[in-house]
Simulated scan of single mutants.
Amino acid sequence: MATPVKHLLAAGTFMLAALGLCAAPASAAPEKNHPKAADVVKKAQTKKSSKGKKAAAVVAAGAAGAAVAATVDEAEPDITDTKVTDYACELGNAITIYTNEKDDAHIALRWKKRLHRLERVGTTTGALRFENKNYGLIWIGIPAKGILLDSKLNRQLANECKNAEQSKPLVTAALDDKKS
């Protein structure tokens, strides 16, 4: 009766060693009692190494794909035949937005001497929201002002951005309405 218990314990130790859960090395597994154990260990090592190679290939392919996507997205958008709107923001920041009448789903935004293409995102509030997910830029335009956000760093890049129309004092507009 002691012999089957020995075999069960030896088999359990081998299985734990093969899974890497036991501190005993795989070579300490009872190869004397189980001649096929060496084959099992070799197959497990081969699978691990082939999986590692496959995973490395997938990571490399993903990195190459991301690099291609980044270079495609890094190309500056075409701003010919666009309407240019300059915004003056607090802290001396400036933003220029290029809009195309034929394509209202995209804008080009110049920020810090770089031109970015942003894609329109629908909102329930009526605000104009445009995003560039690769760079994490978000432009939100409301009737009173515009805001540029960095979604990757979770911070504001520019606030209180106003174009010439938005910069007009509201008091004069209210007085003009009373005169009429």
Rank of each mutant, 00 (worst) to 15 (best):
V41P: 03
K48W: 02
L21E: 14
S50C: 01
H7K: 11
P4V: 09
A10S: 15
K36L: 12
A26V: 10
V5M: 09
S27W: 02
E31A: 08
P35S: 13
A44N: 10
P35Q: 09
D39N: 07
T3Q: 12
K6I: 09
L19G: 10
A55N: 12
L16I: 05
G12P: 00
A60K: 12
V59A: 12
P30N: 15
S49D: 14
A17Y: 04
P30H: 08
A29V: 07
C22I: 06
H34F: 15
G20R: 10
K54E: 09
P30W: 11
V58F: 06
P35R: 13
A24I: 05
A11G: 04
K36V: 13
A29L: 04
L9E: 10
S50V: 08
A23R: 04
G12C: 06
H7G: 01
K48T: 09
N33I: 05
L21D: 11
N33Q: 12
C22Q: 14
A57F: 01
V59L: 08
A23H: 02
A11Y: 06
A56I: 00
A56D: 11
K32A: 12
T13K: 13
K42F: 01
P4H: 05
A18P: 00
K48C: 02
P35F: 08
A17F: 04
G52D: 13
A18V: 15
L8Q: 08
P30Q: 11
T46N: 06
P25G: 02
L19P: 00
K53N: 08
V59I: 10
S50P: 00
P25M: 01
A24Q: 13
K47T: 08
A17K: 04
L8P: 00
M15Q: 13
L9Q: 11
A37Y: 13
T13E: 13
A57S: 10
K6A: 09
E31S: 10
L9G: 05
A29Q: 02
H7C: 00
A57K: 15
V5L: 14
Q45M: 04
L21F: 13
L8M: 13
A44H: 03
V59R: 10
A17I: 03
P4C: 02
K51H: 04
V58K: 14
S27T: 15
S50N: 08
K47S: 03
A26P: 02
V5D: 12
A37S: 12
K43D: 09
P25V: 03
A26S: 09
A18M: 11
A18R: 12
A17Q: 15
D39C: 01
V59C: 00
A10C: 07
A11I: 06
Q45N: 13
S50I: 08
